[in-house]
Amino acid sequence: MHFPAAGIEVAPWIPVAVAFGISLVTSMGGVSGAFLLLPFQMSVLGYTAPSVSATNQLFNVVATPGGVYQYVREGRMVWPLAWTVLAGTLPGVFAGAIIRVALLPDAASFKAFAALVLLLIGARMVRNLLAERRGQHSAGETGARSARVHVLQTCMRSIAYEYQGQKYSCSPRTVFALSLVVGILGGTYGIGGGAIMAPFLVAIIGLPVHTIAGVTLMATFATSVAGVAFYQALAPFYPHLSVAPDWVLGLLFGIGGLAGTYCGARLQKFVPAQALKWMLATVVILTALKYLVDFVG
């Protein structure tokens, strides 16, 4: 099947299957899987035009609602934290889209930028895992089969909630500031920002992964909607570039991702978080190193 905007040919079942497999695993950590889907599109399918970022965000729009629904249904959505993350990432996405089109239109420079973003993600994951090995992880990392979130406080100074008998808190101002930076990076890279935000919330702020997964998936969905709309609006101003998303390809990825995030959210409470994060950290770092080698070469 030919995809004109992407300029590639691929069997339609391949995007569905790849997106399902990626999202099934990554959604358990609050990540849609777009940060792994982008290297697949660029390196395997050969889709390197600027519109690959918009297509990646279209995947997020279609894929993430399944996981968000399941986390809300199970009572593991921290709504005050979700609104704070969303308030920061949303404006950053617009700035990121402009950076991608105006400053990083060619594949070589984009791969270098993507490598740096992926290395940041991998570093955050490794830091979290090393903290867990030293016994510094929270009780929310395991045994989450029936636990629900209970919000205790929401104000300008603190968001506090209880989960599995443990109290967790964070500064809304800190979360907002980080979310703004993540939004810019996510908008440029086409990942929605959850792949960076999720490891930070767990490794640095110390929140349990079973309570932040729904938060980051929801923020990814909302910012990706804005990102797709913005890329589509920018397209007429760059007629010499492929800027708007490849709608058919993005929808095929999204269909697979929707099933994957829903199943991943259902399975998350049964799977040890540490094993999943070690696997993700390895994949992210190896992908980043490959991009750096491609750029230097």
Rank of each mutant, 00 (worst) to 15 (best):
P236A: 02
Q166A: 13
T84K: 08
V126A: 13
R157P: 04
G264K: 12
G46C: 01
L217I: 06
G92T: 06
V284S: 03
G7R: 09
P12K: 00
M42Q: 10
M279Y: 15
L289A: 02
L130K: 14
R173P: 08
G186M: 09
G260Q: 00
V284T: 08
A114V: 08
S158Y: 05
L178G: 15
M218S: 13
A123F: 13
G227P: 04
E132C: 11
T188Y: 11
S169V: 08
R266E: 13
A114T: 07
C263H: 12
P50A: 00
G7V: 06
V293I: 08
G206D: 07
A123Q: 13
A54K: 01
H240L: 13
V228K: 03
V16L: 10
S53D: 09
P239F: 06
I99E: 04
Q57G: 04
I212S: 06
A198L: 10
V209F: 10
V248E: 14
R148N: 03
L58S: 03
V151W: 00
S109D: 09
L86A: 13
A235Y: 07
R157G: 14
A177H: 11
F94E: 03
V283D: 02
Q232F: 09
S224R: 07
F113V: 02
E141F: 10
V72S: 11
T223P: 09
L292F: 00
